[in-house]
Computed example of a mutant assay.
Amino acid sequence: MRPASISTMLRYLVLLISTLLLTPLARSQTAGTTTTTWDCCEPACGYTSNLSPGAREPVKSCNQNNGPAAAGAQNACFTQGGGAFSCQTYQPIIVNNTFAYGFAGHGNTATSTCCKCYQFTWTSGAAKGKSMIVQAINAGGITDVDFDIYTPGGGVGDFNACTAQYGAPSGGWGRQYGGVTSDAQCSQLPSNLQAGCHWRWQWAGGDVNEWAITFKQVNCPSQLTSVSGCIPAAI
């Protein structure tokens, strides 16, 4: 009987430890949704004054040709002739069939979210079960539970610098809110943006807008901070 009792105790201990390890993780998850955007504007987190506490350096902004924006360049969405745009490097980055990196708008207050990273998993839509880690590079007009994924052809929304940067239609490519409606329409975009447009349809499997997720904040991976140039405070 002694071996059986020890075995039972070991199984109980393993179960108890597993429960203790998993419970904090489960409690840290928050429900939300995803949307898409690509307005070509300089990201809100490109301003030092908008950074979250402890974040180092604003996120990078680009000129019309995707080189570094000139010092003091004005946001092209808010200043006619402004020379600061979003960079083509903010497109999603595929890691494998179920995981990707990316950038997103998140939160209504920039100083609460700028440069922080979050991991989410879709719980609905064609991408159900797939995950992303995204860095927040934009904020304002976005709720604290939604992620506006930077996706070429994802819709310009309220502001549009894509006409100035790429000669896009006045309402952007496809719908003003939501963008193109099929993978085939990605051919409307400049060649340097098409991979990110195809990501949405070929990797995620569909429109992405209003798909449900659960998410939590995580430490930022170098795969994202090396692109944005912004490193937030560690958690």
Rank of each mutant, 00 (worst) to 15 (best):
Y166G: 04
G171F: 08
A44N: 09
T89W: 13
N160I: 02
G157P: 06
N50C: 02
I17Q: 08
N96M: 02
Y177S: 08
H198N: 10
T30Q: 11
Q185C: 10
R56V: 14
A73T: 09
S112M: 12
I142D: 00
Y90T: 01
G129Y: 09
A76T: 00
N219T: 03
Q29K: 13
Y101H: 05
F78K: 11
H198D: 07
I93A: 08
T163I: 12
N50F: 01
C220D: 01
T151I: 06
T48L: 15
C197Q: 00
V180L: 04
Y101S: 07
T113C: 09
R2S: 12
G107L: 01
A110S: 09
K116H: 07
F78W: 11
I6V: 13
D158V: 14
C87D: 06
Q88C: 15
K130E: 03
L20D: 10
L10M: 12
I6Y: 11
L16V: 13
I149K: 00
P3T: 08
G205Y: 02
L51P: 03
T163P: 02
P190L: 02
A136V: 08
D39C: 08
A168M: 01
D39M: 09
A100V: 01
Y12V: 14
G196P: 01
T19E: 13
G72V: 00
D148I: 02
S124F: 10
S112H: 10
G179Y: 03
A71L: 15
A164M: 04
P190K: 04
L16K: 14
A84E: 05
R2K: 12
L25Y: 15
A164D: 07
R11G: 14
T151D: 07
R175N: 13
G83S: 14
V180D: 02
A212L: 13
T37F: 14
R56G: 14
T214H: 10
F103Q: 01
V156M: 05
A184P: 08
A204V: 00
D183Y: 10
D148R: 02
G81R: 07
T8R: 15
V156D: 02
V180M: 01
G172D: 02
L21F: 12
A69Q: 06
A139I: 04
